[in-house]
Design a protein around this nucleic acid. Structure first.
Length: 799
DNA sequence: GGTACGCGGATTTTT
DNA sequence: TCCGCGTACC
């Protein structure tokens, strides 16, 4: 299986430009398209193999997007297809945007349009709106965000009298998402799995949830794909329309497709079979949310006769970086196997350095960045990639102290912010009076005295009368079932909605939105709020209203916002980028810092616990993604002590560090104060973490007296230096020196600290402060400016 | 109905 | 440690 890369351009019989006639005409065509210039041999093969199934295995930095866009340009300019004949799917809006842009520059106005280039979800939406009634919806259905989804789940759980503590709505959401990811409708769940949730109620809950969605005329993200499958299966004539329509299908990031997406593609592609998937099994890092690496591993089986092209020539990274990344990923089994090559120079080796704790790691990292900055290295070409968001705090703290400009990439999306969701809910409820979820969301936001009790009453009435909540509210106001005060508030609100609905008919929608936000008291709510981020939220609201102007009407705007709206990043400023490894996929930087390479953190313990070997391999792919983001410099680090959920735990270097090829790596010896010559290959845990009972401590205990036992990871890979201990404090007052492997751990710097509690000191970075506690050579100091920090005495001098 | 405190849980994240 | 949720109280 791994060696079918002998792809030749298909000389298909019959139609198409490779037909005899077409070939005869070949020379008459305007000279070979300039867009093909500069493609290497494999890339060109991937572009020109237009007919039949094609799998392009594109390693990191091998020109994947270029192949995709050139392929489209090729299809269009050779007359094989018109822009609207091509279905081209991506996962993110960003990728879709970039492709549109690049096609535009390749083929000019001819490529404009591309109505079927977009995310799976956007295209699914487009299709569903056209045939909504066939799946029991109206064509103006709403698309629910995760927060609405969650509230709906809660309602369903309540209806079925399920203890939400025992069976949280989030968990149910996860289970249902899982089913949807696998293309399973409520009636298709394997019997065994339906039992899994809440004593066998899983299936019923799913059914109830879907029923609620239908009554709300709403769908969740999963439905955008799942309902397409349902639509096509139940209405073959509709499927045929799309099979005919899409002469060519292109798929980006194929390794990230889930089962539902795979089925979606297979249905569409099974007649014409002109389906080209581009992906990299080594960059599959979304297994935890349903991506099936199997889809890519199985491609040749699913599409017999598929042409497979491997792109292995890397144009991004230097030799050492590529060697490190390749060496690491080679430890994975179950991959199709590619070997990245570069013609670039070896460049700087990947550096590996250790730190005493995560604070020191952040400090060293920031120092490195500052020294690069001093050498005129632009900050925008530096990225710090972490495994989990929680790592960011300490790093940010450090950057803030130093005044180092940085930006966090990722994080909450613009349209997921509370204020945007609220504003959106007002608009949704105005536009669509039966959007109960929207109404419910803002009925008491801002606080107007319509709490749970009133809402319960509304629900009861609405259910009895089979009408939407807003309608029920109007009716209830006409009765005397409500307390006078509640009644008048509620009446005012319902009247506002009627008024707003009339406004929408005849006024510019952004103005109406502005009016709604003001009259409802929503803007005022934030103006009154004094918290730090209130101003930012008001800013976001402004931006929200402003962005509406770009759309013809409110409906179009709502559609856009529910699927694609993103924060408008202030570009341009020279800043360091800070993000998770996941968020870094698809990006590249000259210099990449990879902190936190410690077992438990990375590879992440939870991934290991939950998915075992597969989990480990996915973590390794994540490491591979991280390394391959770097063009010229990759800098790994780890700390031997890290604060996890507020407790200090001792940690051991990541097993991935030992898996790197030594020739590509340069070990930065720990600073003298840190260790008496410890190597970074020293994976013996340090037994003086300050909290006993942590995993690190447990492992340390297990290790003592077991020779080189380790946690089962010894003995392979690079040579290990025998533990000489990481020096530093012998545990302070918590137990004195400890023995490991017959050696006494020396105090780090030998001499006990010259500082005492209460002394006034001066720190090289933090400035003046008072010593609050002494623990060997580690001192706790209350700095005048920086607050309480743990520092090493070597950075201090008496003040 | 609104607020103040205490408890438990805590990856990665797009659409 | 920090955040969100639920409960207890005003």
């Amino acid at each position: 299986m791994p060696n079918s890369s002998h792809a030749t351009p298909p000389s298909d019989a019959g139609r198409g430009p490779s037909s005899i006639a077409a070939r005869a005409m070949g020379g008459l065509r305007p000279t070979a398209a300039s867009y093909l210039d500069g493609l290497n041999e494999e890339q060109r093969r991937a572009v020109e193999a237009t007919e039949g199934p094609v799998l392009v295995l594109a390693g990191a930095g091998t020109g994947k997007t270029r192949v995709l866009t050139t392929r489209i340009a090729h299809l269009i300019s050779t007359g094989r297809a018109r822009p609207f004949d091509i279905l081209s799917v991506t996962f993110t809006n960003k990728a879709a945007r970039e492709m549109k842009h690049r096609i535009g520059t390749l083929v000019g106005p001819a490529g404009e349009g591309m109505p079927w280039l977009g995310t799976f979800h956007a295209i699914g939406t487009k299709i569903l709106r056209r045939h909504a009634e066939l799946v029991g919806l109206k064509s103006d259905f709403t698309i629910l965000g995760t927060d609405d989804q969650l509230r709906l789940m809660k309602q369903v759980l309540k209806d079925q009298n399920i203890d939400e503590k025992r069976w949280p709505a989030r968990a149910l959401g996860h289970v249902i998402d899982g089913w949807k990811n696998r293309g399973l409708g409520p009636d298709q769940i394997p019997a065994g799995e339906a039992q899994a949730f809440a004593f066998g109620k899983g299936g019923d809950l799913y059914t109830a949830y879907q029923a609620r969605l239908v009554t709300l005329n709403a769908v969740d993200f999963g439905d955008l794909l799942l309902l397409c499958l349902k639509l096509w299966r139940e209405n073959p004539e509709v499927l045929t329309i799309y099979q005919d329509k899409f002469r060519y299908i292109l798929v980006d990031e194929y390794q990230d497709t889930n089962v539902a997406q795979y089925l979606w593609l297979r249905l569409l592609g099974q007649t014409r079979k002109n389906i080209a998937c581009v992906g990299d099994d080594d960059q599959s890092i979304y297994g935890w949310r349903g991506a099936e690496v199997d889809n890519i591993l199985r491609f040749e089986h699913d599409f017999p006769g598929a042409v497979v092209v491997r792109l292995e020539r890397n144009y991004r990274s230097t030799g050492h970086i590529l060697a490190a990344a390749s060496g690491l990923i080679a430890k994975n089994q179950g991959r199709l196997g590619k070997t990245l090559r570069t013609e670039d120079e070896l460049g700087e080796p990947v550096t590996v350095s250790g730190a005493w704790d995560s604070e020191e790691e952040a400090r060293l990292l920031a120092e490195s960045i500052e020294s690069l900055q001093a050498k005129q290295h632009p900050l925008s070409e530096i990225a710090v990639l972490v495994r989990i968001s929680a790592q960011m705090r300490e790093i940010e703290d450090r950057f803030v102290q130093l005044g180092l400009p940085y930006r966090v990439i990722g994080g909450p999306r613009f349209y997921e912010r509370a204020e945007i969701r609220d504003a959106l809910a007002y608009l949704r409820a105005t536009k669509n009076p039966s959007d109960d979820l929207a109404f419910e969301r803002i009925v008491n936001t801002p606080k107007r005295g319509l709490g749970d009790a009133t809402l319960q009453q509304l629900h009861l009435y609405a259910r009895a009368e089979q009408v939407p909540l807003l309608h029920a509210a109007r009716k209830l106001c006409e009765t005397d079932e409500l307390k006078p005060r509640v009644r008048s508030t509620l009446r005012a609100l319902t009247e506002s909605f009627s008024r707003w609905a009339r406004l929408v008919e005849s006024n510019p929608h952004s103005e109406v939105a502005q009016t709604i936000l003001e009259e409802s008291g929503y803007t005022e709510m934030w103006q009154k709020e004094k918290s730090a981020d209130a101003a930012g939220r008001l800013e976001n609201l402004k931006e929200f209203v402003r962005s509406m102007e770009e759309f013809p009407d409110m409906g179009a705007f709502l559609e856009h916002v529910s699927l694609v709206m993103e924060a408008s990043e202030a570009e341009g400023a020279d800043r360091v980028s800070l993000m998770t490894l996941h968020a870094a996929k698809g990006l590249e930087f000259d210099t990449v810092f990879l902190p936190g390479w410690e077992d438990g953190l990375f590879p992440n313990q939870r991934a290991l616990d939950e998915s075992g070997r597969a989990g480990l391999e996915e973590e390794r792919r994540l490491a591979h993604v991280g390394l391959t983001r770097a063009r010229k410099r990759a800098k790994l680090s780890f700390a031997v002590n890290r604060r996890i959920h507020g407790l200090w735990s001792s940690t051991i270097p990541s097993r991935f560090i030992d898996e790197l090829p030594e020739t590509a790596v340069d070990v930065i010896e720990a600073p003298a104060h840190f260790s008496a010559g410890a190597s970074r290959f020293d994976r013996n845990p340090q037994p003086f973490g300050s909290s006993y009972g942590t995993p690190g401590w447990q492992r340390a205990q297990a290790n003592t007296g077991q020779g080189n036992g380790g946690s089962g990871n010894f003995g392979k890979g690079a040579a290990h230096t025998t533990a000489r201990g990481f020096g530093a404090s012998p545990g302070g007052g918590r137990g004195g020196p400890r023995q490991i492997e017959g050696e006494l751990i020396a105090k780090s710097t030998g001499a006990p600290s010259a500082f005492e509690t209460g002394m006034r000191v001066l720190h090289t970075k933090f400035g003046p402060g008072d010593v609050a506690a002494v623990d060997g050579n580690k001192l706790t100091v209350d700095f005048d400016k920086a607050g309480r920090k743990m520092v090493l005495d070597s950075f201090l001098q008496p003040a």
